[in-house]
Amino acid sequence: MSQFISEKNFEQLKKLAYKTMKVKKGMFLFQEGQLGENFFVVLSGKFQISKFSGDGKELCLRLCGSNAVIGELMIFAENGRYLFNGRALEDSEVLAIKNEDIEKELLANPEFAVEFLKMMTDHFRKQHTKFRDLVLYGKKGALYSTLIRMANSYGIQTKDGILLDVPVTHQDLANFSSTSRESVNRELNTLKSKGIISFKGRKIIIHSLDYLKKQINCEGCPSSYCNIE
């Protein structure tokens, strides 16, 4: 559940749902360009929110688990189409809410409207910073930014450094950095040779988070913004 929506209003949001949907692993709940008539609340499972570039590369923007709100950017957009893709990373279940129903609730309930607006602003800010890192610092900077965000979302402090307590493949990192798996592999090996990171099975240990932050002129955003979710 978003930090900006109270439990009372979140329960009210879920009551607006008109159906429950099961989404199999690998299936798209929505795709960019499709008419955006609904948005969704994740009940269980996990979704990846992404966008494809003109050359077919995928840029991953968010990982969304239980109680996340996704596909919400089409509200009050007449004949709006989804800007991003939502694909299930595991078997998942969601509530579907019609845009017209949430629009009526927002107009009738000022308290709920303010909280919902804060949540959407939060999503915009997170996406803006991710695009900023990619544009200003290139694909290497996007990789460093991804590692920092993963540390904030999944990092566990150990005696050896910050363990990213989530299995991650080089292709996963490539998707978050809008680059190739080969480029990620080379850059990770460079970081390993410098002692910045090491590997523990499929997990990464970051030994110097400060090094990564310095390379992209990290602004010290709170972890509530600088995360992978």
Rank of each mutant, 00 (worst) to 15 (best):
K19A: 01
G36M: 09
L83R: 12
L73Q: 11
K22F: 09
K25A: 10
L59E: 04
H123N: 10
K104W: 06
N185E: 10
A113F: 09
G80S: 14
K194I: 05
Q157G: 08
L83K: 07
L191K: 04
S177W: 07
D55Q: 05
F116S: 07
G86V: 07
K130G: 03
T169M: 00
I70Y: 07
F10G: 09
I196R: 00
N67V: 05
L35E: 06
G80Y: 02
G36W: 12
S224M: 07
S177R: 08
E72D: 14
Q215M: 08
D172H: 06
N67M: 03
R132T: 06
I228C: 00
K203D: 07
I205L: 10
A142Y: 01
I49S: 14
K126R: 15
T129N: 09
S44H: 09
K192V: 01
R149D: 05
L188E: 04
K140H: 05
L173H: 05
F124V: 15
E32D: 14
H207G: 00
S193L: 09
L13P: 02
S50Y: 13
K126T: 07
Y144K: 01
D55W: 00
R87T: 13
G155H: 04
S177Y: 08
K104D: 03
D165M: 08
S53G: 03
N109H: 01
S223P: 08
R186M: 12
L173C: 02
Q12W: 05
